[in-house]
Amino acid sequence: MSLKGGKRWLLLGFLLAVFLSWVSGFLNPYDRGVWIDCGINVILAVSLNLILGYTGQFSLGHAGFMSVGGYTAAKLTLVTVALIPASFHPLAFVIACLLGGLAAAVAGLIVGIPSLRLRGDYLAIVTLGAGEIIRVIWQNTEAVGGASGLSGIPKSTTLGWTFAFAVLTIYVVLCLVNSTYGRGFIAVADDELAADAMGINPVRYKVTAFVVGAFFAGIAGALYAHHKQTIVPTGFDWLKSVDIVVMVILGGMGRTPGVIVAAILLTWLPEQLRVIADYRMIVYALLIILLMILRPQGLFTFKTRKGASVS
């Protein structure tokens, strides 16, 4: 991505989103649903890639942040939908998405500041625990439906909006990393001690990655809630986090294009395997094992990162 071209790509992406929202009228509801799932998973995987791929922090709490966004946004639209006229509902939905993202970012900050002193496996365990705590909180909060969750959420998520938010996520992550400032994320992942000695504050970079990643996970959660129309706490357990981690590792840690393709592939594949019914998850798992054996560096990693990306 070129320097000035960044904003042009963003604009192009948004125009494409408008076009897609027109196209989506011709799709059957099932296909449309699968593509929206793909978009949501792209947002999740690309945002986790900032934390796990670029900054090297093994987080298993992404589903937790997703649920914060989902619950916040769903509750907001459920409350406002009766109060405002129908023509304002799309606007309320987008604002709810952004607020859901903000709530998740705050959760990311609260979890991140104490736990990012830890590294590697220890961080994975702490974030796993944090994600489970968030889930258990939802399970025991009657205001958001407790164990049976929230239902009757308006179906506001469209293909166009999902695509637009996915474009925004990709833009933000790529712009952050492809700058002199952003090379610090990779430096922290490579060697924290050396990065510290070069004047990079590792804690600040790690918390930034965590908060930005959580923000987009929250948006993905909001889109998910308004797509499925029902959310339950068990839908955001740690297995969901593992799904997202698999997308990042399969696509290639710190390789955004690969992660995007992996996210789409891993959403689309289980749907295509529905014909073999009960065996589909076995085949799916076998495919993942096979891919990891054949391409351990990630699906779409072809060369080392070049330094010449300034101009």
């Binding site: 933000v172 952050l176 700058s179 070069m198």
Partner: peptide, 26 residues
Amino acid sequence: FPSLSVFDNVRVAMQVRNPHGMLSAL
């Protein structure tokens, strides 16, 4: 930094005197 190029290894150290942070990069 093993996953960075020669250029980026030096570039990353310039950040400490570089006024452009996160928002400016966005």
